[in-house]
Nucleic acid binder design. Structure first.
Length: 115
DNA sequence: AAGGTGACTAACA
DNA sequence: ATGTTAGCCACCT
């Protein structure tokens, strides 16, 4: 478990229920704005029993862009809707209204708080 | 150690 | 506005 992964998980846990964050956003919070791909990679190797809400992390356009066949996009969409997030299926892709549900990292101070 | 890969984005054509 | 190409950074082979 690398330190980078650990940071990603810590931030992902900050996402409140009913909101979502984009990969680029999280990458920016990690001081590596271009490492959006790594964020996805980190979430990919995330164990199932983890408390990290990986389903609240989506692409920058509000589309669930998952490639892991162990966790299909429909499952993620289902989890989000269970939290009150409206997920619209458009052309086989699950889309989320970012203007409504995008999480604003206004509580960055929480990151400094190491648990 | 070097090169390839990817749950991404932004820039071009 | 859609389709492709090219950066990007850390991980994997």
């Amino acid at each position: 478990m690398t330190d980078f992964y650990n940071k990603v998980y810590r931030i992902a846990r900050q996402i409140p229920k009913g909101h979502v964050a984009t990969y680029g956003q999280i990458a920016a919070l990690l001081s590596t704005p271009r490492a959006a791909r790594m964020v996805g990679t980190a979430l990919r190797s995330l164990p199932d029993d983890s408390d990290v809400p990986w389903h609240r992390v989506i692409s920058g356009k509000g589309i669930i862009t998952i490639e892991n066949m162990e966790h299909p996009t429909e499952e993620q969409a289902n989890l989000l809707m269970a939290e009150g997030v409206i997920v619209t299926k458009v052309d086989g892709e699950y889309t989320i209204n970012l203007k409504e549900y995008l999480w604003s990292p206004e509580s960055l101070e929480a990151l400094s708080d190491k648990r």
